[in-house]
Amino acid sequence: MITAATIKIKDDEFVELKDIIYKNAAISFADSKKYLLENRLSKRLQELNFTSFKDYIYYLKYDAKKREEMEVLLNQVTINETYFLRERAQMDHMIKTIIPELLNSGKRSVRIWSAACSSGEEPYSLAILLNEAGLFAKANIEILATDINTEVLNIAQQGLYRTISFRGVPPMIQDKYFSKDGFAFKLDPNIMNKVKFFQGNLLNPMMSVKVGRLDIIFCRNVLIYFDIPAKQKVIELFHKSLGMPGTLYLGHSETLNKISESFRMENFGGGIIYKKI
């Protein structure tokens, strides 16, 4: 927050707002993240003429358009940084090991879900690597990508990225798949067409119906925002949605230890994967 003044949030307001966010998105905010709500929401409060977070909480609870405001709120608090080819070893593992195994077992169609895709860098990275490996020609591969945040999904669907999204991306990949568009980079439409985006909340019981039967799920650096009961629900959803043999990729700092026993952990050298039991 550079130009607008920050409105301070009181302890009881923080607890109530974090409960509202938790109930609607299952995201847990540690007490040390209070500043984050202040920074991301102060401007919105000022737009609404509010001078305190209490005003805003009442707006979320009592305004006729509270559902719309909930979307605004969730869009503000669920923005997470990502970039192309992040934690690439897992993506390479999928390309070199998991998909070939599926194809060797006779499968001719593979369904992949990027379960919290943010602005699209993860599913597009998968599509780029699948294309590089020539796998789209060998099988019918479908990539689904969902996120709770409608604003980041809009960005994903535009396929326009700034340099911050290209940390560690080999220039060869960037030059081949992106063209300069002003001060941004536009993704090749052929890659964009490989990914189907839609809005979805991982805690929504209907989510498994929306995504259908899957072979591979990527859900990286997302579970860290959930508390244990929410993590358990999400993992249950993944277990239900994956066929056999189903593969789940989590972020490097995430674990299913004490969360679920319905996956078997395997170390592939460059990281961890979880196989459905």
């Binding site: 540690a30 040390s32 860290i224 508390d227 244990i228 700092s253 995430e254 674990t255 230890n257």
Partner: peptide
């Protein structure tokens, strides 16, 4: 405290027991 360690502390219900800062 990195996310991984935080998660272990959370499982042990210790995140509110400790003052955690950067």
């Amino acid at each position: 405290v990195c996310d991984n360690v935080y998660q272990v502390m959370e499982m042990a219900n210790l995140t509110s027991y400790f003052t955690i800062e950067e």
